[in-house]
Design a protein around this nucleic acid. Structure first.
Length: 261
DNA sequence: AACCAATACAACCGCAACAAA
DNA sequence: ATTTGTTGCGGTTGTATTGGT
C-alpha cells in the first residue's frame, strides 16, 4: 500500500509563479494565516500543490524576508555556522533573520564554495585543500592505524592537550573517512594558540606558532617583526587569551600547512 | 547582432520526521 | 503498534540573466 502523493498533480501548474498567483497566495496567507498547506491552493484559488505554495511563501513572499546579496558579516556567519553544522541549511538560516535556507544554500553553492576553494580551503571539510587532497590519496590501512595506537578515545579538542601538535594534527586527519571528517571551525583555526604558553612545557609549545612561516602574512599587524617571530614578544600579545583568530586572513592558498606543522 | 558559456536564483523532487487517527 | 497525512529539509534541476567572443 503506497502512500498517497502530497497532492493530486493532474492539472496543476508548475514552474515560475506569476504575479497574479503571488498576489492570490499573499492575500490568502495574510488574511487567514498559515494553515494546512494542502488546503491552501484550493482555498486561495491556485492551481498549485500545497508544497509549492509553502515554498513560494517561505522563500519569496514572506514579508519579513531580506532581499539582496548576503552582507560580508552574514557570509562570515554562514561559513562559521557551516563549519559547525554542515549542510543543515535550515539551522543555519535560523541564525540569520530574514534569510531562507534556500537562499543560503544557493549562496553557498554559487559564491562561498568558490571563494573558499580560491582561499585553498575545502568547503566540505573546512580544511586546507592540500591536506584534504593528501588524505584522499591515503590508503585505507593508513586511515586505521592511528586509531589502534591510541588507547584513549580520540577527542575533537583541536589538539589542545598534546604537546606534539604535528602528530596530533596528522592523527586527527587520519582518523576519519572523507564523509565523517569533522569540520574545522574558526576555533580550530585557533588550535595552535591553544597550546598555552603558561602550561608546563610552555617553551616548546609557544614556539610552535613562532616557527610558522606564513607566506604573505603580515605579522606586523600583530606587532610582530615579520622576519623574527622567535624573539618577539608580540606573539604572546596575540596569544593573550590563547586565541589567535585567522578569520580576517583572506587568502590561505599559498600556505603550505604540512610544512608549517 | 548573434551565439555560447557561465552564473544566479527559483522551483521541484524525494525522503524523513513527526503527529494524528 | 501501525497506518496515514503533513510538514520541513536538503539535493538537484530548470530557466532567466549576464558576460565574453
Amino acid at each position: 500500500m503506497g502512500r498517497q502523493p502530497c497532492c493530486d498533480k493532474v492539472g496543476l501548474k508548475k514552474g515560475p509563479w506569476s504575479a497574479d498567483e503571488d498576489r492570490k497566495l499573499m492575500n490568502f496567507i495574510l488574511t487567514h494565516g498559515q494553515c494546512c498547506w494542502r488546503a491552501v491552493p484550493k482555498l486561495a484559488g491556485l492551481l498549485r500543490c500545497g508544497k509549492s505554495c509553502r515554498l513560494r511563501w517561505t522563500n519569496y513572499l514572506r514579508p519579513d524576508l531580506k532581499r539582496g546579496l548576503l552582507s560580508d558579516h552574514e557570509e562570515k556567519m554562514v561559513i562559521d555556522l557551516h563549519s559547525q553544522l554542515g549542510n543543515r541549511w535550515s539551522k543555519i538560516a535560523s541564525h540569520l533573520p530574514g534569510r531562507t535556507d534556500n537562499e543560503i544554500k544557493n549562496h553557498w553553492n554559487t559564491h562561498i564554495k568558490k571563494k573558499l576553494r580560491k582561499m585553498g580551503i575545502d568547503p566540505l571539510t573546512h580544511k586546507p585543500l592540500s591536506i584534504v587532497e593528501q588524505e584522499e590519496e591515503k590508503p585505507l590501512k593508513k586511515l586505521q592505524k592511528p586509531m589502534e595506537q591510541t588507547a584513549e578515545e580520540p577527542t575533537n579538542d583541536c589538539l589542545t592537550k598534546d604537546s606534539n601538535s604535528k602528530n596530533m594534527f596528522m592523527a586527527m586527519n587520519l582518523e576519519y573517512g572523507v564523509e565523517e571528517v569533522p569540520t574545522i571551525d574558526p576555533e580550530c583555526l585557533e588550535l595552535i594558540c591553544n597550546n598555552s604558553p603558561t602550561s608546563s612545557s610552555s617553551s616548546n609549545e609557544s614556539s610552535i606558532l613562532k616557527d610558522f612561516q606564513f607566506p604573505d602574512f603580515d605579522w606586523s599587524d600583530y606587532g610582530i617583526d615579520n622576519n623574527n617571530h622567535h624573539n618577539n614578544n608580540g606573539v604572546d600579545n596575540i596569544m593573550e587569551n590563547n586565541v589567535m583568530s585567522l578569520w580576517d586572513v583572506d587568502d590561505f592558498s599559498s600556505w603550505d600547512l604540512y610544512n608549517i606543522i
